[in-house]
Simulated scan of single mutants.
Amino acid sequence: MDIKNIYYFITSSRSFCIHIVFTLNAIYYVSHAGLNPLQLVLIGTIMELAVLFFEIPTGLVADFWGRKKSFIIGTFIIGLAHLLEGSVPTFWAIAVGAALWGIGWTFISGAETSWIADELENNELDTVFLKGAKFSSIGSFLGIIVSVVVATVFTVQIAILIAGGLLVVIAIILLRIVPETKFLSIAHGETTSYQQILHAVKGGLIQIKGNAMLISLAVVTIFFGLASEGFDRLWGAHFIEGFHLIEKDAIYWFGAFYAIAFLLNIGILKVVETYVKERFAMVLLVLNSLLVLLMLIFAVSNAFLLAALLYWLIASLRAVNTPLINILTNKQLQSQGRATALSMYGQLDAFGQVAGGPLVGIIALYTSIQGGIISSAILIIPTLYFLWRMSKFS
């Protein structure tokens, strides 16, 4: 199988399984486990704490022992996390599952993009990352449809368990089909493992410190993290509690929320891939300026259909950030130590989410869910200045 097609299979199959869960977890958390707004945000905070502590160690695993091993381990752990949370609908079981999910994701973060960048020797990264994001969206769209069907025929809980089991199977398949031919370990035989780790971390920091674009990307990553966790955990509760959706209706509506958002995302990615040439920072500036405005209107909207329309636009715009940031970051990094440097960005994102999540959760608990969403929108605003600076560099 062509290396690009393997990459597209990885991104689409994992997104398929994860979005079987993501389509339904707001319903599962609120209706089955009975979590309050603060607990909802704390679930995300626990996940991001795991990311914060494990990003650098797992990045080193990828740079020392192989990117393939790293992202396959991560896929397997995420499967176990969904099996656990789907088995026991309680706050503590879901919290442990969230921690495992965060650890699993750190094995994937940086390693997967480093693997494909190395295998392609940094050629065609714009096209491959954008197409990978489109295939991921297609997989997510199919996962949404399957989640609605399974939850309707069986239960929300069964759908989550099926997704967890499929991820474990996918990890086993990847072990057999993924090649790794261009990997260069950063290990040096003449130094101790501890010295090698320090050298790898120092090398990643030097790459970032010496590059104005990478520094701006680091600041943007922190603020995206600060803003994202609260919205991720509260938008579903906004629909369920604000518009009094019963579980049966919520299953269909949440399927529609995710499905239409991903179709819009595919369209936006196609436009970016076709018409945007090297002006990715400017595109990010325009899209995130619009995103802030839409989130503020979404928070105060009392009309269900307007809120649904706004959510579709918000979700599709947010999904464009990741591939564009990946392109900008990978183009600035050297091959050796790339996964460790990318893990540092993952750690910055996790730090932002750990700091921003509880803040937004407390605001939501003591004001309203709408107040929490408004605070998330405000936290995006500082990124606009740094995206404007980045547009001057590119």
Rank of each mutant, 00 (worst) to 15 (best):
V360E: 04
G361C: 10
P358L: 11
Y385H: 11
T367L: 12
G352S: 08
A364S: 13
G361S: 10
A355R: 00
G356F: 09
L379K: 04
L379A: 09
M344H: 00
P358I: 12
G352C: 08
G371R: 05
S343M: 07
L379G: 03
Y385R: 12
F351A: 15
Y385E: 05
P358D: 12
Y385N: 04
I373P: 02
S376I: 07
G356Y: 10
G372K: 02
G357T: 11
S375C: 13
Q370V: 03
Y345I: 04
Q370K: 12
Q353P: 04
A377H: 08
V360R: 03
L359V: 15
I380R: 09
D349R: 15
L379W: 03
T383I: 14
F386W: 14
P382V: 09
L348R: 01
M344R: 02
Q347D: 00
I363M: 03
A377S: 13
Y345G: 01
G361K: 08
G352T: 08
Q353Y: 09
A377Y: 06
P382I: 10
I380F: 15
F386L: 10
I374G: 01
I378E: 03
Q353W: 06
L359Y: 12
M344C: 00
A350W: 10
I373N: 02
S376K: 08
S375T: 12
F386Y: 15
L379Y: 04
Y366T: 13
S375N: 02
Q353V: 04
M344I: 14
S343C: 08
Q353N: 15
A350S: 14
Y366A: 02
V354W: 06
I362N: 01
Q347V: 03
P382W: 09
I380V: 15
L348V: 13
L384G: 09
S368A: 11
I380T: 06
P382M: 09
I369S: 11
T383H: 05
G372E: 03
V360L: 13
Q370I: 01
I373D: 02
Q347K: 09
D349V: 05
T367K: 05
